[in-house]
Computed example of a mutant assay.
Amino acid sequence: MLRYFAYFIHRLVQVIPIALLIILANFFLLKMAPGDITDVMAGEMGAATPELMAMLRQQFGTDQSVPLQLMHYYGKLLSFDLGFSFRNGMSVAVLIAERLPATVLLASASLLLACVTGVGLGWLSANTRRPWIKNGISILTTVGFATPLFWIGLMLIVLFSIHLQWLPTGGVEDIDSEYEGIARLLDIARHMIMPVLSLSFFYLAIYARITRTAIKDVERLDFVRTAHAKGLSNVRVSVVHVLRNALLPIVTVTGMQIGSILSGSVVIETVFAWPGLGRLAFDAVSQRDLNLLLGILFCSSLVVMLTNIATDLIYAALDPRIELK
Rank of each mutant, 00 (worst) to 15 (best):
residue 250 I to W: 07
residue 227 A to T: 06
residue 226 T to D: 06
residue 238 S to K: 04
residue 230 K to M: 12
residue 276 G to K: 03
residue 197 L to I: 15
residue 280 L to A: 02
residue 271 V to Q: 05
residue 291 N to L: 10
residue 262 L to I: 11
residue 224 V to C: 10
residue 253 V to K: 04
residue 191 H to Y: 05
residue 293 L to G: 08
residue 265 S to L: 06
residue 209 R to W: 09
residue 202 F to P: 02
residue 278 G to V: 01
residue 284 A to E: 01
residue 213 T to C: 04
residue 230 K to L: 11
residue 209 R to A: 06
residue 252 T to Q: 11
residue 204 L to C: 10
residue 245 N to F: 03
residue 276 G to T: 00
residue 235 V to N: 06
residue 206 I to E: 01
residue 239 V to C: 08
residue 216 K to C: 08
residue 222 D to S: 13
residue 257 Q to M: 09
residue 285 V to I: 15
residue 260 S to N: 08
residue 230 K to W: 12
residue 272 F to I: 00
residue 224 V to G: 05
residue 202 F to S: 10
residue 192 M to R: 00
residue 286 S to H: 11
residue 224 V to N: 07
residue 269 E to W: 01
residue 262 L to K: 04
residue 262 L to H: 05
residue 240 V to A: 10
residue 224 V to L: 09
residue 271 V to A: 04
residue 207 Y to E: 02
residue 269 E to I: 00
residue 230 K to I: 08
residue 257 Q to C: 15
residue 236 R to F: 12
residue 226 T to F: 12
residue 284 A to F: 05
residue 213 T to V: 14
residue 252 T to S: 15
residue 209 R to G: 03
residue 279 R to I: 02
residue 199 L to E: 04
residue 289 D to W: 00
residue 241 H to G: 12
residue 262 L to A: 05
residue 247 L to R: 08
residue 275 P to R: 03
residue 285 V to E: 06
residue 252 T to P: 08
